[in-house]
């Protein structure tokens, strides 16, 4: 009885936490499905890709790769460039996910930008099963994504209202998490570094090429700041 109520509470908590992602994923998924259908790939392609690739921005890129008949090598390189940021997420979740038991492989597989944002700094209240929270959030998010992309492929063109701008939900979610992380600590150096380095790289390298230099820059900055952040002079995280 006790265990069942913890499970239920955890599911409820995970569902609530995932609602902003639901809004974003259903919409972005629909957009992806519409695009794919437009290039002549039916709904089962949308389902297949959302189940196996499960990486939002990469799937948008993949539509062009598929439709343009890209070579295997160029598709592989593109995937590395677009998705290398996921290595960061793994580094961050090493300790937590290594303790996750048999769910670990799925948790790692499903670690998208949005799922990462919900698990990386989650402070769970009493009575919530941490491992199950990770599992439920990961599963729910992938469901939203798969359902959204299939809806897009099947019925995307008949959606009756203008949804232009609704994908801002994702941006808003990241901003909210940024604010929450900001309030959680007095040490703002990592957060400020992340923003400043990314903006500088965006200005220097342009919208399509800034992510990799930004990641290298952030990694370098964190290592340079290590002594300060861990030393007596720095405020603790």
């Amino acid at each position: 009885m006790e265990i069942r109520s913890v499970q239920k509470n955890t599911l409820k908590y995970a569902w609530k936490a995932s609602i902003p992602v639901m809004a974003g994923y259903v919409v972005l998924g629909i957009g992806f499905g519409v695009l794919l259908e437009d290039k002549g790939y039916g709904w089962w392609w949308a389902a297949l890709m959302s189940l196996t690739i499960y990486a939002g921005s990469m799937q948008y890129v993949a539509v062009d790769l598929l439709a343009g008949g890209a070579t295997i090598v160029s598709a592989a390189l593109m995937t590395v460039f677009v998705n290398i940021r996921h290595v960061f997420y793994g580094l961050t979740m090493l300790e937590k996910y290594n303790a996750a038991g048999r769910e670990k492989p799925y948790l790692i597989f499903a670690l998208t930008d949005e799922t990462f944002s919900l698990v990386c700094s989650a402070q769970l209240p009493e009575g919530i099963d941490e491992k199950k929270y990770y599992l439920y959030v990961s599963l729910l998010n992938q469901c939203y994504w798969v359902v959204g992309s299939v809806i897009g492929a099947v019925a995307g063109t008949v959606i009756p209202f203008s949804s232009t701008g609704i994908d801002f939900a994702m941006t808003a979610l990241f901003v909210v998490i940024f604010v929450e992380q900001w309030e959680k600590t007095k040490q703002h150096l990592p957060a400020v570094s992340g923003i400043v380095i990314s903006v500088l790289c965006r200005i220097v390298f342009g919208a399509s090429g800034f992510l990799i230099p930004a990641m290298i820059g952030i990694l370098a900055a964190m290592l340079l700041e290590k002594r300060w952040l861990e030393g007596e002079g720095g405020k603790p995280l």
Partner: peptide
């Protein structure tokens, strides 16, 4: 993992969410 990697795991979330915000607004 070595200590440096565990340290990165601790500080990176703060920097990466900032990066994701910029990523969303990149266009």
């Amino acid at each position: 993992a070595p200590k440096t990697v565990l340290y990165l795991g601790k500080v990176l979330p703060y920097a990466i969410i900032g990066m994701l915000v910029v990523y969303c607004l990149k266009n």
